[in-house]
């Protein structure tokens, strides 16, 4: 079982990301509430909202009531959109209030990690679905049968790049190590970050196969080492692992070359003894071997790269030579 101290620390690591997500939700909720008030309200209410839209500079200089008459003309939304907007607001509020219930999970023994993540992201995605519904309603093209399901779930595969950038960090406490982490790859996009908190058991290098150039991957025994991971604004996966597992940091910020990005800190002293998450002993050995190969490639890389530093003048010369198509002469 993960320790309480680890759990608390991981919650603190994930907090800023969740707060950022909730702040976006709060802004959207406020905007939609204001729009509903405008659509449903009387002239006075519209005037108050228009004054807010115009900001302090307009105070005493622009009559918000008169301005509102012309601003309405630019707005596609009609009072008929208000009930749909109310439903979207309710979903957004639900997601906003759920807080860590959305992002912190415990994986029960025998359950599938991928399914848990997929479900969690689907619930988070309801906020994006609600925003989409609000957009459709204000544009006057909401169709109940076609679009209402977006309020119930919004699959990760439909998330756009901006939505993937907004995703809050997920923390999964794993009660036993009998899970397979390698198929999380499909979720590692935008700024989706996942922390897997293994207890005393897990395979030797559960994240080894997730290493790719733009993904922050870290396996460590010390949650204190996650500061860089949390600061990274791209996709990432971290695992807090037991003592004798492989430990490494693959930090895309550390450089463009593999040897700059990958830092292998520790390799298991013993061969794996148990199968985990459907990974046989052989497959686990393969994971460790994969790490060794990558680390070896990283170690051998610097000498050759340093030997031929690409000076701007050389790059330019190479480019010009390339353009000259000398091979055709």
């Amino acid at each position: 079982m993960p320790s309480d101290a680890h759990t608390k620390h991981l919650a603190a690591v994930a907090k800023p990301s969740l707060e950022g997500f909730r702040s976006s939700l709060a802004t959207t909720i406020a905007q939609l509430q204001s729009l509903v008030a405008e659509l449903e309200g009387d002239e006075a209410a519209r005037s108050v909202h228009m004054a807010e839209h115009l900001g302090a500079f307009a105070q005493g200089r622009v009559n918000p009531n008169r301005f509102a008459q012309f601003a309405q003309g630019q707005q596609a939304a009609t009072p008929a959109a208000a009930p749909v907007l109310q439903r979207a607001i309710a979903v957004l509020q639900e997601v906003h209030q759920a807080g860590t219930q959305l992002t912190h999970h415990t994986l029960q023994p025998g359950k599938n990690l991928r399914c848990l993540l997929s479900h969690s992201l689907r619930q988070i995605g309801r906020a994006f679905g609600a925003a989409r519904v609000a957009q459709l309603a204000t544009a006057g093209c909401f169709d109940e049968r076609e679009h209402a399901p977006l309020l119930d779930q919004y699959l990760f595969r439909y998330w756009g790049p901006e939505q993937r950038k907004l995703a809050p960090m997920l923390v999964i406490h794993i009660e036993d190590g009998d899970v397979q982490a390698t198929n999380l790859g499909e979720f590692l996009d935008g700024a989706v970050k996942v922390i897997l908190n293994f207890g005393n058991l897990c395979s030797a290098a559960p994240l080894a196969r997730l290493i790719s150039p733009g993904v922050f991957v870290v396996q460590t025994t010390d949650p204190q080492l996650l500061a860089e991971f949390a600061a990274w604004d791209g996709p990432g996966v971290a695992a807090i692992v037991p003592q004798d597992c492989a430990q490494f940091v693959h930090n895309p910020l550390a450089g463009t070359a593999l040897h700059q990005r990958l830092n292998l800190l520790h390799l298991p002293s013993h061969a794996p003894k148990h199968a985990f998450g459907g990974l046989s002993l052989q497959q686990q050995m393969e994971d460790v071997h994969q790490l060794q190969v990558l680390a070896k490639a990283a170690e051998s890389a610097p000498a050759s790269e340093e030997a031929s530093p690409a000076r701007p003048v050389d790059k330019l010369a190479a480019l010009l030579l390339n353009k000259a198509h000398l091979e055709e002469v």
Binding site: Q31, S34, H53, G55, Q135, T138
Partner: peptide
């Protein structure tokens, strides 16, 4: 104010 931002 959230209202300073325009809707999409």
């Amino acid at each position: 104010q959230a209202n300073w931002h325009a809707l999409e």
